[in-house]
Simulated scan of single mutants.
Amino acid sequence: MGESLTDEALWALLTDHVGDPVPPDVRAAAREAHGWRDPAAALAELIADSARDDGRPATVRGPGGARLLTFAADELTIELEVTRDDRHVSLVGQLVPPAGATVHIDHRGGSVELVADDLGRFSADGIPVGPVRLTWRAHADAVAAVHTDWVLL
């Protein structure tokens, strides 16, 4: 059998044959993304996105207006209105059926946790433009979580 390589020797060999090393911030983001996994959570699929519907303009209020997204999982839906500037997005959401819940927003700059009221309403400002995923856990069901696909905002 051949001689085993240390991690450092294997990394150097791969770097020599593959190209430039992966930047540290990319490696850190990959580690953090792996930590966001929750295998027990249900996945809410993106079922409507005003930015992709019928070739119509992706706004509801003219230029610079809102983007509307709808995610669904089983009998749960989240409706989301997204407004943005060059660097940040603002989110206004509604859980259907209405219920108080904890909403967790993962984004490239970290995460935000907030509370949806008893009617399922929530909002967040200052989320960095880029990939975003929402996870919510109804107050009445503290075990089951639902999360959305990652979406680019």
Rank of each mutant, 00 (worst) to 15 (best):
I105H: 10
L119H: 14
G93W: 06
V96C: 08
E113F: 13
D85W: 05
R87G: 04
I78A: 07
G110R: 11
L68F: 13
E81L: 10
T70H: 07
E79Y: 12
E75P: 06
E81P: 01
L119C: 04
L68H: 15
R84Y: 08
D118C: 01
V82W: 00
D85H: 01
L119G: 11
A72V: 13
R84T: 14
L80N: 07
L69C: 01
G110Q: 09
V103F: 10
H107T: 09
L69A: 02
L95V: 02
R87S: 12
L69D: 00
D117C: 09
V103N: 05
H88E: 15
A116M: 08
A73Y: 06
R87F: 06
D85S: 09
V115L: 08
I78R: 02
A99L: 13
R121F: 05
G100Y: 03
G100L: 11
H88C: 07
E81V: 11
G100K: 05
D86I: 03
T102F: 00
Q94D: 11
L119N: 14
L80S: 03
A73H: 03
V103E: 08
D106N: 07
P97S: 04
V112Q: 14
H104W: 06
E75M: 14
T77V: 08
P97C: 08
L69P: 00
A101T: 12
T70W: 02
L119I: 04
D85E: 00
D74G: 15
E79K: 06
V82Y: 01
L114I: 01
V96I: 14
R108I: 08
I105A: 12
D106I: 01
S111M: 01
V115F: 02
V115D: 07
E79L: 08
L69W: 10
A101L: 10
I105M: 09
D117A: 10
V115P: 01
G109C: 12
R87E: 10
D106T: 03
V96D: 09
F71H: 00
D117G: 12
E79H: 13
V103T: 04
Q94A: 11
D86T: 09
H88A: 12
S90V: 04
G93M: 06
H107P: 10
Q94V: 07
V103W: 06
E75A: 14
P97F: 03
E75G: 15
T83W: 05
L80K: 01
P98W: 05
V89S: 14
A101V: 12
V112S: 06
D118W: 01
E113G: 13
L80F: 01
G109W: 08
G93Y: 03
R87N: 04
V92E: 13
L80V: 02
G100W: 02
A99V: 12
F71Y: 01
V92W: 09
L119M: 12
T102W: 03
G100V: 03
H107N: 12
R87T: 09
R84E: 14
A116K: 10
D106F: 13
P98A: 15
A73Q: 02
E113K: 12
L80A: 02
F71P: 04
L68Y: 12
A99T: 15
V92G: 07
E113H: 10
G109M: 04
T77M: 12
I105C: 14
P97N: 05
